[in-house]
Nucleic acid binder design. Structure first.
Lengths: 235, 235
DNA sequence: GACTTAATCTGGTATAGACCAGATTTAATA
DNA sequence: TATTAAATCTGGTCTATACCAGATTAAGTC
């Protein structure tokens, strides 16, 4: 098994990456070049690259090439730190874009959670977040307008937890989390510039206030190679 | 984009699976048959199947075929339930095999965590756990023999939390968790009967006693499609 | 220099075929 | 009937080649 061509090629690049001969973010030779150098067809080269991608060592940019994956950020939900804060603290540069925002009627699930009438207005917010210019996360959230009236008029590219603290005297407290390792929905994959079918990490998060009301329901779609989850269970 | 052959094929099977025309655990036609039916080459068929695999809808058994993925089990670390218990509670049949067990000297990391001397003996335990006959999880753990003397003589295919409770009057309490979505190491992939390069979920878990001592350090390698993680953060 | 256009390079998709090793089934044998 | 051996089926790996669309670069033009 270990003598397979793609397997050897994986080993070759894995070593270059671990030795930092190929540095974080740098570009690999093109598939054709690699094939020429190792006398392999593109099919075989691509199998090796795709395996390294699954490992999280490299990633691709559509029709641009393959690149060495930067270090993953550590996301610790129990710390209650905002994206901007924990990304910055770990020495990276965070960025947030608002892709869409609208007030829309709550669906049954959201309404039940927020204890509001079905079709009552909630704020839908759709954002893309990047680390060092690299899009890593698509966020789709439903925000409870009863608890946060007028929030739709704020600048919603900023940290929500900051906004809650400053303008509403509220803070994130308890939350329910569901993690699922699956490929990204094609819409999210597109928005992240990922080719369809790549593995991803799906997080559903329900944020509660101090008094157990649902502030916000959040669906996050992460590049699988961009984040490690770190949780302390204390009870 | 949506007109690509592999994409249509994905849609075809996704629908069959969601409609339960193809039932959980059932076998798909062979790659060659599918290719014949849709006038596609195996390369294209395989691309569709691999994407569905990344989605978690189907999985393969080496040289046997492709099968519809059974429902994932929900793993809630904060519940402190044993594998056997939560799997059973969710209507599945758990099974545990011991692949290896030995007393070995602690490495620096383990020793520091357990507050014991480097190279002091710890119990290494390597198990495979299955749900409904399907191997889903490889577990490699290091157990603190200071806190659990003589545990190596017990039947270590049983639930450890039961064993701790009954024989040592100890229970799992606090834990630190690190989740990482990456492909499985080839050894773990082999033991799960997965072909190399498939995505997986890697969990590192440190279990503490009531008095903050490290009972056990646990490395888990899950099939990515076999588990959803569910955590409640309360502080 | 700024702008436009064309050539080139990149990965993405796809065809057609081949051989292998392990799993399964069938046929032959004791 | 039980056992063994052979044929067949499966996914796994690989070659060789082709065309596409978007990204980048080079060349040409104003």
């Amino acid at each position: 098994m270990s003598t397979h061509h793609y397997y050897q090629l994986q080993g070759y690049f894995r070593e270059l990456i671990e030795q930092k001969t190929l540095k974080s973010g740098s570009k690999l030779p093109s598939e054709r070049e690699i094939g020429e150098q190792f006398k392999l067809t593109r099919v075989t080269v691509r199998q090796a690259l795709q395996n390294l991608e699954a490992e999280g060592l490299i990633y691709r940019q559509n029709r641009k090439g393959w690149f060495v994956t930067p270090p993953a950020v550590i996301y610790n939900p129990s710390s209650h730190l905002s994206f901007n804060l924990y990304v910055t603290e770990q020495g990276f540069l965070p960025h947030t874009e608002k892709l869409m925002q609208q007030i829309e009627p709550a669906n049954a699930y959201i309404a039940q959670l927020m204890n509001i009438a079905e079709n009552a207005p909630v704020l839908y917010l759709h954002r893309r977040r990047s680390i060092n210019q690299r899009p890593v996360l698509i966020e789709k959230m439903y925000i409870n307008l009863n608890l946060l009236p007028g929030i739709e008029k704020e600048d919603l590219t900023q940290s929500l937890s900051q906004l809650l603290k400053n303008n509403y005297q509220r803070e994130y407290r308890d939350m329910d989390l569901v993690f699922k390792s699956t490929s990204l929905p094609s819409s999210a994959a597109n928005e992240l510039g990922i080719s369809a079918g790549q593995p991803g990490l799906h997080i559903e998060r329900i944020n509660y206030t101090d008094d157990k009301q649902v502030l916000e329901v959040d669906y996050e779609f992460w590049r699988h190679d961009a984040v490690n989850i770190n949780i302390a269970i204390r009870d």
